[in-house]
Simulated assay, not measured.
Amino acid sequence: MSMLKIKKGDTVKVIAGKDKDKEGKVIAVNQKTGKVIVEGVNMLTKHTKPSAQNQEGGIVRQEGPIDISNVMYVHKGTATRVGIKMDGDKKVRYAKSTGEVID
């Protein structure tokens, strides 16, 4: 994969799957597998043994990865596609609905 259009810290909306229409902030992006972890989306339960860090152990709820094709960037409250264009000699992302540069 070349340059991904979703980055850590972006606000995204889920457009497919069991968590459709939920919005959240991107916590992590895995460029190799094309997956993102979004705050409060695709919650999984994990059973953990007691350890030095977690004395209690038990059931922990955490976010699971979701495919990058199932999320859409949110710009000014609406989901929009993201494009890449050259700004001088630098690549920048822009919102296709408004044409405004994101970063």
Rank of each mutant, 00 (worst) to 15 (best):
K90T: 15
K85G: 08
S2P: 15
G77F: 07
M72A: 11
M86R: 14
K90M: 11
V60P: 01
I84W: 07
D67Y: 09
I102S: 01
I102G: 02
V12E: 04
K5Y: 05
G57C: 12
S97V: 02
Y73D: 01
I59Q: 06
M3N: 12
S69Q: 10
I84G: 05
K22T: 13
M1I: 09
V41F: 02
T11P: 03
T98G: 03
Q31K: 15
G64E: 06
N70D: 15
T78R: 14
V71C: 08
I59A: 11
I102A: 00
K22R: 15
D21T: 05
K76R: 13
K32Q: 13
K49L: 11
M3A: 12
G17A: 05
T48A: 12
V82S: 02
T45K: 15
K35T: 08
V29L: 10
Q31D: 13
N54R: 11
R93W: 01
G9S: 04
T45I: 13
E23C: 10
K91W: 06
T45R: 13
T80S: 12
S97F: 09
A95H: 03
V29S: 07
K32Y: 08
V74S: 02
K91S: 12
S97W: 00
D89A: 08
T78D: 11
V92L: 05
P50I: 08
I59W: 02
K96N: 10
P50G: 08
S51C: 13
V29D: 10
V38F: 00
K5L: 11
K96E: 14
E23I: 07
K13P: 00
K7L: 06
E100K: 00
A95P: 08
K49W: 11
V101S: 03
P65Q: 05
Y73R: 03
K91Y: 09
E23P: 01
N30L: 08
P65K: 03
N30Q: 09
I102C: 04
V14C: 03
S2V: 13
G64L: 05
K96W: 08
S2A: 15
Q53I: 14
V41N: 02
N70M: 01
K85F: 06
I6L: 06
G64A: 06
K32N: 13
S51R: 09
N42L: 06
D89Q: 09
Y73S: 00
D21M: 00
T98Y: 09
S69P: 02
H75V: 09
L44E: 14
V29I: 14
I37M: 14
D10T: 01
V82D: 00
V12M: 00
M86V: 10
I102K: 00
A28E: 15
Q55S: 12
D10V: 04
K91Q: 15
E63C: 12
S2K: 15
A95Y: 05
G88T: 00
G99T: 07
V60A: 05
G83N: 04
V92K: 04
Q62G: 11
V41C: 02
S97A: 14
H47I: 12
V71E: 02
M3G: 15
D10K: 00
V74W: 01
G83L: 01
K18R: 13
